[in-house]
Each structure stands twice: as structure tokens, then as C-alpha cells.
């Protein structure tokens, strides 16, 4: 059995956690990996806490149960740290990436994480700059790519561009460029360890 790499995304309805999981899985597939990307199944409501998941592997993935012990947790919204069990099941050598203004040292203490890696990124700030509104999902995608080294920046940009062009069907070039810029900036500014 090949190792399966698992990611859990925490966000709020409307922040694009599911889209990020899909983009990440899709991009990982372009590097030859097998993938799964799926949302936490339920009614989707704006603002409600939601989760999405990825599984990646070098061989076919047949697991179809929920992700319980993720290798990486991505938190799209800092306020979720208060209300959601974001560290639940995170592997002892796992990684958490958080959209926040705080330093990773502070968060490590706050979340009571001893052995895991903690990375931080001001994804909200980046998206406000590049898109004019708070859409932290694509910056977090960039941060995740950097931290996990699953896909390089250039490949991720090229692949995401292709996907977004298809999604917007030729319209919204500003949105596409903004998202790609978000990925780039986040890729270069995520920090921690």
C-alpha cells in the first residue's frame, strides 16, 4: 500500500474551501498523482464552518471514508481557531497552515501544538490587495504548495490559470490575474516551521 497524503481544509461557507481543495487536487494530478477532493457533505450556508479534504497518492486511492488524521490542516479563516477543533487528529509530524496576522510561535502556544509544524500567512490581506475582497482560498493554495512541495509555483500557476479560464469561460480576466497574483504572493511569503 502506497502512502496516502491527507489534507483537511477549514473555512466558512463562501470562502472557497471546496474550490481550493479541487484546485489543489487537480494540480497535484497534473504531476502524475492520484487524487481525491471532496467537501464535507452537507447543506452549504454562507458563513457556516465547512471542511473540505484532499487525498493524494502515487497509486490508486480506494479509501472512501472521512479523513480523520490529516497530514496537513489548512485554516482559511482565523476566527475558526476559536470555534472549530482545527487540530483534531492532526498527525504528530503534521503541518498546520493558518491565515492569520499572528506569528507561528504564538499560534503554536495557543493551539497547544508541540511536534507539528505551524505556518502562517496573511491570506486575507493578500486577497484584499489582489482581488479587492476577502477570498483567502487561492492564497492558501499557494502557501500549501510551498509548504508541501507537492507542486512547484510555475506549474501551479499554469494549471490554476487553465482551470480558472475554463471556470469563468473567457470572462473575468481581472479575477483570474488577481487569483494568480494571490498564489504567487502567498507562495513567497508563507513562513513558519
Amino acid at each position: 500500500m502506497e502512502k496516502i497524503f491527507e489534507v483537511r481544509w477549514h473555512g466558512r461557507g463562501g470562502q472557497g474551501a471546496k474550490t481550493a481543495a479541487i484546485l489543489f487536487g487537480d494540480a497535484a494530478m497534473s504531476t502524475g498523482k492520484y487524487l481525491q477532493a471532496f467537501p464535507e457533505y452537507g447543506p452549504e450556508r454562507m458563513g457556516a464552518p465547512v471542511q473540505a479534504f484532499n487525498r493524494l497518492s502515487d497509486s490508486k486511492i480506494t479509501l472512501h471514508c472521512g479523513v480523520k488524521e490529516p497530514d496537513v490542516v489548512v485554516v482559511l479563516d482565523p476566527t475558526l481557531l476559536e470555534s472549530q477543533p482545527v487540530t483534531k487528529g492532526l498527525k504528530s509530524d503534521g503541518t498546520i497552515i493558518i491565515n492569520t496576522l499572528l506569528e507561528s510561535k504564538e499560534l503554536r502556544k495557543k493551539l497547544n501544538l508541540a511536534t507539528q509544524k505551524v505556518f502562517t500567512i496573511n491570506a486575507s490581506g493578500i486577497s484584499r490587495d489582489t482581488l479587492g475582497r476577502e477570498l483567502p482560498n487561492t492564497p492558501m493554495l499557494g502557501a500549501l504548495a510551498k509548504v508541501t512541495e507537492i507542486i512547484g509555483l510555475e506549474d501551479l500557476i499554469a494549471y490554476t490559470k487553465k482551470k480558472l479560464v475554463k471556470k469563468f469561460r473567457g470572462k473575468g480576466s481581472g479575477v483570474i490575474e488577481g487569483n494568480l497574483e494571490s498564489i504567487k504572493r502567498a507562495y513567497n511569503s508563507v513562513r513558519g516551521g
Binding site: I22, G25, D26, M29, Y34, L35, Q36, A37, F38, P39, Y41, K60, I61, H64
Partner: peptide
């Protein structure tokens, strides 16, 4: 297919 588990899960 199985609801959500397969219907909404993206796979290769």
C-alpha cells in the same frame, strides 16, 4: 454511485 462519497468526490 454512492451519494457524496462518490458523487461529489473528485477523483482521477
Amino acid at each position: 454511485t454512492d451519494a457524496f462519497i462518490i458523487s461529489h468526490s473528485m477523483q482521477r
